[in-house]
């Protein structure tokens, strides 16, 4: 047996102290850069928004129901744009949330291994389709298709992009929900089944409640994406801000407006230019609020383990 001399070799080993010292500093710097960037963006948003409200009454912004940025007598009520976004998001949610969660429950609790191995990759493909393709799909296929049995449906409307946005966020909701369900330990299912509960009772009363924070997070992520979705709505929703709840007519979302302005010639320093930031700020506040609401919801129903 060769004398391995391990103890001695370990004692003599000089490990680099330099690495241990520098790594935290490097990581900290990287983190700081991210933080500073975020602060920078926020700062710009806030400053320019304030600028905007130096020129336009904030009361009008918050209370007026008309948004007309390009006329010679512009109106700056944010309500139509918010409404536009919400119409898309709600329709998308109606499409994506039940389907996504349902699919996730099926895949996680009921599907055989083989079935799961076939379906999951297909869902992943859906997630990989570029949003511009989705947009084209919406305007060239979905809208005409819907028009065939909803005659009053406008060429630009909320229903078609809403549905397609739903389809776009469905794989995300399904995948994240399935992860949340899978991470519920099997011992929990066994405990329930062992007492004579049916599979459905186990899923609905034990597994789903246990995974609720994960499911909530999945839904919020999906809805946040829907709020910030730009391409599909730019292509298929139109650019006419309105305050009606009619989903069959043309509208404009917050994101749609931003695209419209930036793809046109908005001269630096004009009201239209600054309105970009105000709308952007509103968008940001929305997503922030969504996050906070979801955290509050999952905290209330959280079953920790």
């Amino acid at each position: 047996m060769v004398d391995l001399n391990i103890r001695e070799r370990i004692a003599n080993n000089q490990r680099s102290k330099l690495v241990e010292k520098t790594v935290p500093i490097v990581l900290f710097s990287i983190t700081i850069i991210s933080v500073l960037t975020t602060i920078g963006i926020l700062y710009t948003l806030i400053v320019e928004t304030v600028h905007f409200f130096g020129r336009v009454s904030i009361v009008e912004f918050l209370t007026s129901t008309k948004w007309n940025a390009f006329s010679s007598t512009p109106s700056w009520g944010i309500f139509p744009l918010i409404l536009g976004t919400l119409k898309i998001v709600v329709i998308g949610a109606i499409v994506a949330v039940p389907t996504g969660i349902g699919a996730a429950i099926y895949l996680s609790e009921y599907a055989s291994d083989r079935t799961r191995r076939i379906i999951k990759p297909i869902l992943e493909v859906l997630a990989g389709i570029p949003t511009v393709v989705y947009g084209a799909f919406a305007i060239t296929f979905v809208t005409p298709f819907l028009q065939s049995f909803i005659p009053p449906l406008n060429h630009f409307n909320a229903l078609s992009p809403g549905i397609v946005v739903g389809i776009m966020i469905l794989p995300m909701i399904a995948s994240l929900t399935e992860d949340a369900l899978s991470s519920v330990p099997n011992s929990m299912r066994e405990g329930s089944l062992g007492m004579g509960a049916t599979k459905f009772e186990t899923v609905s009363k034990v597994v789903l409640p246990a995974a609720i924070s994960g499911v909530g997070a999945a839904v919020v992520l999906g809805l946040s994406r829907a709020i910030g979705e730009t391409m599909i709505v730019s292509i298929a929703a139109g650019s006419t801000p309105n305050s009606s709840f009619n989903i069959l007519e043309s509208l404009q979302t917050m994101t749609g407006f931003i695209v419209q302005v930036t793809s046109g010639d908005a001269a630096f320093g004009t009201d239209v230019y600054y309105s970009l930031y105000a709308v952007g700020m509103t968008l940001f506040i929305f997503t922030l609020a969504m996050n906070m609401i979801s955290q509050w919801i999952t905290k209330r129903f959280r079953e920790e383990y």
């Binding site: 405990g191 004579g196 034990v206 383990y305």
Partner: peptide, 17 residues
């Protein structure tokens, strides 16, 4: 059957309730 024949498992598995 499982209502009449209960089971206690090796690792305690209470529900997160």
């Amino acid at each position: 059957l499982r209502t009449k024949v209960g089971m206690v498992f090796q690792k305690p598995n209470p529900f997160p309730k």
